[in-house]
Design a protein around this nucleic acid. Structure first.
Lengths: 196, 196
DNA sequence: TCTGGAAGTTACAGACCGGTAACACCCTAG
DNA sequence: CTAGGGTGTTACCGGTCTGTAACTTCCAGA
């Protein structure tokens, strides 16, 4: 069983962790609640005592993913305290490293591809979380003293987003291999144009 | 019924066209074969007389999409015969225009997000079609006299790919609004660096 | 007009889906 | 020791899914 994660912890935590893992690997519609609870070493009733529906579980998984991704920023600040430019380069390296982690792209982007109903609860939190990520990157660029911070942040956003979907379609040997080169080149180029 | 396309043509064509439209709008796993045949004004038996399985129908839809996208290149050549640089700029404009067409991203990327089984027949054709698109863009860049044609083509690929998924997650008002500016800037920048 | 193949119709098989009811169990806090 | 809440178990509901069987209808070409 490759979808283990059956350590002894509270059932809710096991369900959440297992669901995150299985949604990531197999997609949301590719995993049933029965499969999740079985892999989590519990049962369907317990799931529905902690989550009112599969949709709510999906939303909680996305939030948990975002929280984990958010802690990345704290790690950058801890590693390069105050040096925003170094943190930006750390972000580039980290993003590139994640590209080769597995063949699956961004969980939020994948969820948005699968959950097409315009009023699906997950769509709202996806938008909200993606916008938070964007504003975080904008702030980092601005604090790094880059003039057109929004434009650089948006460009980097599109690049990494594109790299992740590219990995999912053609694999790790495609255009995504050039991501670091592109990103570093952009940062240099943007630092060249008048700051502040 | 928003998913019409029930003009009088041969059932196979109607099924293919309807399936393309519905897969695009609602995702692959979000549409059953019954719904497709009903919207196509036919029935399930007829579908299975023309396609041996839903998976084969999916593959045919992806191929049809790619063929349609491929005809785009011919249109560029027709509009700007021999002027490869103008064709490249036409590609940028066309790609940007498609961003605002609807909130759904690239069908192939979405399919790759949904069909997670590593040996799913669709995964192979997605990779093959994406690689064909990439080599086409590389050729266009090279023929336009750009030095680092591969790098520019890959960068543009990641940007448009990222823009399409961005539209799907945060909508048309997000980072994707800057796509044309980014792409045009890149082309200018790459033309600056030594050509052939 | 006859005929053969394509298409339509109905019903069904077998599996899976999300979600619920009823009840037995265990373990900890009082 | 006891009470009660969290958990596990089993069975079930109604619905949907892909795919098939058997049969009828229609229509174009000889």
């Amino acid at each position: 069983m490759t979808d283990g994660v059956v350590e002894r912890s509270r059932p809710r935590d096991r369900i959440l962790e297992t669901a995150r893992d299985m949604f990531h690997k197999h997609g949301i519609k590719g995993v049933g609640v029965d499969a999740i609870t079985e892999a989590a070493g519990t049962n369907k009733m317990t799931l529905y005592r902690h989550f009112e529906s599969k949709d709510e579980l999906i939303v909680e998984c996305l939030r948990a993913n975002a929280a984990k991704a958010g802690s990345m920023w704290d790690a950058f600040e801890a590693e390069f305290p105050g040096d925003k430019l170094a943190q930006l380069h750390a972000w580039v390296r980290k993003a590139a490293a994640m590209l080769n982690a597995d063949g699956r792209g961004c969980d939020m982007a994948n969820a948005a591809a699968e959950l097409t109903e315009p009023d699906h609860p997950a769509r709202l939190v996806i938008k909200e979380l993606k916008e938070a990520q964007r504003s975080r990157l904008v702030t980092l660029c601005r604090d790094a003293g880059i003039g057109q911070a929004e434009l650089l942040a948006d460009t980097l956003s599109l690049l990494i987003e594109g790299a992740r979907v590219s990995v999912q379609t053609v694999g790790t040997e495609g255009p995504s291999t050039q991501f670091v080169r592109m990103a570093e080149g952009l940062i240099v180029s943007f630092r060249g144009t008048a700051a502040g």
